[in-house]
Design a protein around this nucleic acid. Structure first.
Lengths: 122, 122
DNA sequence: TAAAAACATCCTTATATGCGCATATTGTGT
DNA sequence: ACACAATATGCGCATATAAGGATGTTTTTA
Protein backbone atom coordinates (compact mmCIF):
# COMPACT_ATOMS: atom_id res chain seq x y z
CA UNK A 1 0.00 0.00 0.00
CA UNK A 2 2.77 2.42 0.96
CA UNK A 3 4.50 1.39 -2.19
CA UNK A 4 1.48 2.07 -4.33
CA UNK A 5 1.02 5.47 -2.76
CA UNK A 6 4.62 6.34 -3.45
CA UNK A 7 4.16 5.30 -7.07
CA UNK A 8 1.09 7.45 -7.53
CA UNK A 9 2.67 10.36 -5.72
CA UNK A 10 5.73 10.27 -7.93
CA UNK A 11 3.44 10.60 -10.92
CA UNK A 12 1.41 13.50 -9.61
CA UNK A 13 3.83 16.21 -10.62
CA UNK A 14 4.23 17.89 -13.99
CA UNK A 15 8.02 17.83 -14.02
CA UNK A 16 8.13 14.13 -13.29
CA UNK A 17 5.48 13.25 -15.84
CA UNK A 18 7.42 15.16 -18.46
CA UNK A 19 10.59 13.44 -17.33
CA UNK A 20 9.04 10.01 -17.64
CA UNK A 21 7.69 11.02 -21.01
CA UNK A 22 11.09 11.74 -22.52
CA UNK A 23 12.45 8.56 -21.01
CA UNK A 24 9.90 6.70 -23.09
CA UNK A 25 11.98 7.82 -26.06
CA UNK A 26 15.32 6.59 -24.82
CA UNK A 27 17.69 6.18 -21.91
CA UNK A 28 18.83 9.62 -20.75
CA UNK A 29 21.46 11.19 -18.56
CA UNK A 30 20.51 14.03 -16.24
CA UNK A 31 21.64 16.79 -18.52
CA UNK A 32 19.66 15.46 -21.44
CA UNK A 33 16.48 15.59 -19.39
CA UNK A 34 17.51 18.99 -18.20
CA UNK A 35 17.87 20.26 -21.76
CA UNK A 36 14.79 18.54 -23.09
CA UNK A 37 12.58 20.04 -20.42
CA UNK A 38 14.49 23.29 -20.12
CA UNK A 39 14.82 23.02 -16.36
CA UNK A 40 17.63 23.33 -13.81
CA UNK A 41 20.10 20.57 -13.06
CA UNK A 42 18.85 20.22 -9.49
CA UNK A 43 15.31 19.84 -10.68
CA UNK A 44 16.18 17.25 -13.29
CA UNK A 45 18.29 15.26 -10.87
CA UNK A 46 15.65 15.24 -8.17
CA UNK A 47 12.90 14.41 -10.61
CA UNK A 48 14.81 11.36 -11.80
CA UNK A 49 15.76 10.33 -8.31
CA UNK A 50 12.18 10.33 -7.11
CA UNK A 51 10.95 8.31 -10.07
CA UNK A 52 13.79 5.92 -9.42
CA UNK A 53 12.94 5.52 -5.75
CA UNK A 54 9.33 4.94 -6.71
CA UNK A 55 10.47 2.01 -8.79
CA UNK A 56 9.91 3.33 -12.28
CA UNK A 57 13.50 3.82 -13.35
CA UNK A 58 16.67 1.86 -13.67
CA UNK A 59 19.96 3.62 -12.92
CA UNK A 60 23.16 2.79 -14.72
CA UNK A 61 26.41 4.66 -14.11
CA UNK A 62 28.72 5.18 -17.03
CA UNK A 63 31.70 7.42 -16.48
CA UNK A 64 30.46 10.79 -15.44
CA UNK A 65 26.94 10.04 -16.47
CA UNK A 66 24.00 8.71 -14.55
CA UNK A 67 21.87 7.01 -17.13
CA UNK A 68 18.24 6.56 -16.28
CA UNK A 69 15.83 4.39 -18.20
CA UNK A 70 12.37 3.01 -17.70
CA UNK A 71 12.65 -0.22 -15.79
CA UNK A 72 11.03 -2.89 -17.88
CA UNK A 73 12.51 -5.76 -15.91
CA UNK A 74 11.59 -5.70 -12.27
CA UNK A 75 8.49 -3.59 -12.59
CA UNK A 76 5.79 -4.62 -10.19
CA UNK A 77 2.68 -5.79 -11.94
CA UNK A 78 0.94 -2.44 -11.64
CA UNK A 79 3.73 -0.25 -12.96
CA UNK A 80 3.10 -1.05 -16.62
CA UNK A 81 -0.51 -0.03 -16.11
CA UNK A 82 0.52 3.27 -14.63
CA UNK A 83 2.86 4.00 -17.50
CA UNK A 84 0.18 3.07 -19.97
CA UNK A 85 -2.30 5.33 -18.26
CA UNK A 86 0.23 8.12 -18.33
CA UNK A 87 0.78 7.71 -22.05
CA UNK A 88 -2.93 7.92 -22.72
CA UNK A 89 -3.44 10.86 -20.43
CA UNK A 90 -0.54 12.70 -22.01
CA UNK A 91 -1.51 12.09 -25.62
CA UNK A 92 -1.62 15.33 -27.55
CA UNK A 93 -0.08 17.40 -24.80
CA UNK A 94 1.82 20.35 -26.31
CA UNK A 95 4.43 20.44 -23.57
CA UNK A 96 5.33 16.80 -23.66
CA UNK A 97 5.57 16.79 -27.44
CA UNK A 98 8.04 19.65 -27.53
CA UNK A 99 10.01 18.03 -24.72
CA UNK A 100 10.50 15.02 -26.95
CA UNK A 101 11.46 17.31 -29.80
CA UNK A 102 14.09 19.16 -27.80
CA UNK A 103 15.47 15.85 -26.61
CA UNK A 104 16.69 15.19 -30.13
CA UNK A 105 19.03 18.16 -29.99
CA UNK A 106 20.27 17.45 -26.46
CA UNK A 107 23.97 16.78 -25.88
CA UNK A 108 25.55 14.77 -23.10
CA UNK A 109 28.44 17.15 -22.73
CA UNK A 110 29.34 20.75 -23.43
CA UNK A 111 27.58 24.04 -22.66
CA UNK A 112 24.17 23.53 -21.11
CA UNK A 113 25.25 20.46 -19.20
CA UNK A 114 26.09 20.15 -15.55
CA UNK A 115 26.09 23.42 -13.67
CA UNK A 116 26.70 25.13 -16.98
CA UNK A 117 28.50 28.41 -17.38
CA UNK A 118 29.97 30.09 -14.35
CA UNK A 119 27.88 33.06 -13.36
CA UNK A 120 30.49 35.64 -12.51
CA UNK A 121 32.39 34.93 -15.72
CA UNK A 122 31.84 38.25 -17.47
CA UNK B 1 -2.03 16.97 -18.49
CA UNK B 2 -3.43 18.93 -15.56
CA UNK B 3 -6.23 16.47 -15.51
CA UNK B 4 -3.91 13.50 -15.39
CA UNK B 5 -1.93 15.05 -12.56
CA UNK B 6 -5.09 15.64 -10.59
CA UNK B 7 -6.05 12.01 -11.11
CA UNK B 8 -2.72 10.72 -9.87
CA UNK B 9 -2.68 13.14 -6.97
CA UNK B 10 -6.09 12.05 -5.82
CA UNK B 11 -4.80 8.49 -5.68
CA UNK B 12 -1.63 9.25 -3.75
CA UNK B 13 -3.22 9.29 -0.34
CA UNK B 14 -4.03 6.39 1.94
CA UNK B 15 -7.46 7.60 2.98
CA UNK B 16 -8.56 8.07 -0.61
CA UNK B 17 -7.20 4.73 -1.76
CA UNK B 18 -9.08 3.05 1.05
CA UNK B 19 -12.17 5.03 0.15
CA UNK B 20 -12.00 4.00 -3.47
CA UNK B 21 -11.42 0.46 -2.34
CA UNK B 22 -14.69 0.21 -0.43
CA UNK B 23 -16.51 1.85 -3.30
CA UNK B 24 -15.43 -1.06 -5.43
CA UNK B 25 -17.79 -3.10 -3.27
CA UNK B 26 -20.84 -0.93 -3.67
CA UNK B 27 -22.26 2.55 -3.86
CA UNK B 28 -21.84 4.26 -0.48
CA UNK B 29 -23.07 7.27 1.39
CA UNK B 30 -20.63 9.36 3.38
CA UNK B 31 -21.38 7.78 6.70
CA UNK B 32 -20.87 4.28 5.37
CA UNK B 33 -17.39 5.19 4.24
CA UNK B 34 -16.83 6.88 7.54
CA UNK B 35 -17.78 3.74 9.44
CA UNK B 36 -15.96 1.35 7.16
CA UNK B 37 -12.69 3.25 7.50
CA UNK B 38 -13.27 4.38 11.05
CA UNK B 39 -12.60 8.02 10.24
CA UNK B 40 -14.28 11.34 10.92
CA UNK B 41 -17.17 12.68 8.87
CA UNK B 42 -15.13 15.62 7.64
CA UNK B 43 -12.41 13.31 6.45
CA UNK B 44 -14.78 10.95 4.69
CA UNK B 45 -16.64 13.78 3.02
CA UNK B 46 -13.47 15.44 1.75
CA UNK B 47 -12.00 12.19 0.61
CA UNK B 48 -15.05 11.50 -1.51
CA UNK B 49 -15.21 15.03 -2.79
CA UNK B 50 -11.64 14.97 -4.04
CA UNK B 51 -12.07 11.64 -5.78
CA UNK B 52 -15.22 13.02 -7.32
CA UNK B 53 -13.51 16.16 -8.58
CA UNK B 54 -10.74 14.03 -10.01
CA UNK B 55 -13.37 12.27 -12.08
CA UNK B 56 -13.43 8.88 -10.42
CA UNK B 57 -16.79 9.09 -8.74
CA UNK B 58 -20.38 9.72 -9.61
CA UNK B 59 -22.55 11.61 -7.12
CA UNK B 60 -26.22 10.90 -6.67
CA UNK B 61 -28.37 12.66 -4.08
CA UNK B 62 -31.14 10.70 -2.46
CA UNK B 63 -32.97 12.34 0.37
CA UNK B 64 -30.48 13.06 3.09
CA UNK B 65 -27.81 10.93 1.52
CA UNK B 66 -25.03 11.73 -0.87
CA UNK B 67 -24.39 8.48 -2.66
CA UNK B 68 -21.03 8.06 -4.29
CA UNK B 69 -20.12 5.32 -6.71
CA UNK B 70 -17.31 4.57 -9.10
CA UNK B 71 -18.07 6.24 -12.39
CA UNK B 72 -18.07 3.54 -15.01
CA UNK B 73 -19.75 5.67 -17.63
CA UNK B 74 -17.82 8.81 -18.42
CA UNK B 75 -14.46 7.62 -17.24
CA UNK B 76 -11.65 8.92 -19.36
CA UNK B 77 -9.81 6.21 -21.19
CA UNK B 78 -7.01 6.03 -18.64
CA UNK B 79 -9.11 5.83 -15.50
CA UNK B 80 -9.87 2.12 -15.79
CA UNK B 81 -6.15 1.49 -15.94
CA UNK B 82 -5.58 3.48 -12.78
CA UNK B 83 -8.29 1.61 -10.95
CA UNK B 84 -6.90 -1.68 -12.14
CA UNK B 85 -3.41 -0.72 -11.00
CA UNK B 86 -4.85 0.26 -7.66
CA UNK B 87 -6.57 -3.08 -7.25
CA UNK B 88 -3.36 -4.93 -7.95
CA UNK B 89 -1.29 -2.75 -5.69
CA UNK B 90 -3.81 -3.13 -2.91
CA UNK B 91 -4.23 -6.87 -3.16
CA UNK B 92 -3.58 -8.54 0.18
CA UNK B 93 -3.47 -5.29 2.11
CA UNK B 94 -4.65 -5.84 5.68
CA UNK B 95 -6.15 -2.38 6.05
CA UNK B 96 -8.18 -2.43 2.88
CA UNK B 97 -9.48 -5.91 3.60
CA UNK B 98 -10.78 -4.96 7.02
CA UNK B 99 -12.27 -1.79 5.58
CA UNK B 100 -14.32 -3.94 3.24
CA UNK B 101 -15.26 -6.16 6.16
CA UNK B 102 -16.45 -3.28 8.31
CA UNK B 103 -18.44 -1.95 5.39
CA UNK B 104 -20.76 -4.92 5.71
CA UNK B 105 -21.84 -3.81 9.17
CA UNK B 106 -22.18 -0.15 8.27
CA UNK B 107 -25.60 1.55 8.58
CA UNK B 108 -26.87 4.55 6.69
CA UNK B 109 -28.58 5.96 9.71
CA UNK B 110 -28.36 5.87 13.48
CA UNK B 111 -25.48 6.28 15.91
CA UNK B 112 -22.15 6.66 14.16
CA UNK B 113 -23.64 8.58 11.28
CA UNK B 114 -23.45 12.27 10.57
CA UNK B 115 -22.01 14.35 13.37
CA UNK B 116 -23.17 11.65 15.73
CA UNK B 117 -24.22 12.20 19.32
CA UNK B 118 -24.33 15.70 20.72
CA UNK B 119 -21.38 16.32 22.98
CA UNK B 120 -22.90 18.36 25.78
CA UNK B 121 -25.87 16.03 26.07
CA UNK B 122 -25.11 14.55 29.49
C1' DT C 1 -42.36 25.85 11.93
C1' DA C 2 -38.96 23.72 14.64
C1' DA C 3 -35.83 19.99 15.54
C1' DA C 4 -32.99 16.48 13.84
C1' DA C 5 -30.22 13.97 10.44
C1' DA C 6 -26.65 13.74 6.88
C1' DC C 7 -23.38 16.50 4.51
C1' DA C 8 -20.54 20.32 3.16
C1' DT C 9 -17.54 24.07 4.29
C1' DC C 10 -14.73 27.47 6.94
C1' DC C 11 -10.83 28.37 9.88
C1' DT C 12 -6.71 26.98 11.94
C1' DT C 13 -2.60 24.14 12.60
C1' DA C 14 0.92 20.77 11.52
C1' DT C 15 3.31 18.72 8.04
C1' DA C 16 4.87 17.74 3.36
C1' DT C 17 6.48 19.20 -1.09
C1' DG C 18 8.91 21.60 -4.98
C1' DC C 19 12.49 24.41 -6.03
C1' DG C 20 16.73 27.36 -6.16
C1' DC C 21 21.24 28.34 -4.40
C1' DA C 22 25.43 26.92 -2.83
C1' DT C 23 28.28 23.15 -2.09
C1' DA C 24 29.76 18.28 -1.75
C1' DT C 25 30.80 14.03 -4.35
C1' DT C 26 32.72 11.27 -7.82
C1' DG C 27 34.88 10.24 -12.17
C1' DT C 28 38.20 11.97 -16.09
C1' DG C 29 41.98 13.77 -18.35
C1' DT C 30 46.37 16.32 -18.08
C1' DA D 1 47.97 15.84 -7.62
C1' DC D 2 44.99 19.22 -9.94
C1' DA D 3 41.34 21.23 -12.55
C1' DC D 4 37.16 20.32 -14.60
C1' DA D 5 32.69 18.04 -15.80
C1' DA D 6 28.32 15.68 -14.51
C1' DT D 7 25.66 14.70 -10.76
C1' DA D 8 23.93 14.59 -5.88
C1' DT D 9 22.68 16.89 -1.59
C1' DG D 10 22.00 20.17 2.56
C1' DC D 11 19.49 24.21 3.63
C1' DG D 12 15.90 27.60 3.44
C1' DC D 13 11.70 29.55 1.58
C1' DA D 14 7.17 29.63 -0.35
C1' DT D 15 3.35 27.00 -1.04
C1' DA D 16 0.36 22.93 -0.93
C1' DT D 17 -1.93 19.48 1.61
C1' DA D 18 -4.31 16.78 5.32
C1' DA D 19 -6.96 16.88 9.29
C1' DG D 20 -9.85 18.36 13.35
C1' DG D 21 -13.39 21.16 15.43
C1' DA D 22 -17.07 24.25 14.85
C1' DT D 23 -20.58 25.83 12.01
C1' DG D 24 -23.51 26.45 7.82
C1' DT D 25 -26.87 24.05 4.52
C1' DT D 26 -30.46 21.17 2.89
C1' DT D 27 -33.94 17.72 3.47
C1' DT D 28 -36.93 14.99 6.26
C1' DT D 29 -39.93 14.38 10.14
C1' DA D 30 -42.63 15.56 14.13
Amino acid sequence: MKELIKAFKSLSDETRLRTLNVLLEKECCVCEVMQALGISQTRASRSLMILHQAGFLRLRKEGLWSLYSIDKREMKKFYPLLVKAMKQGLAGSIVSDSDRERLKGAKRTGPGCGRGVKKGAD
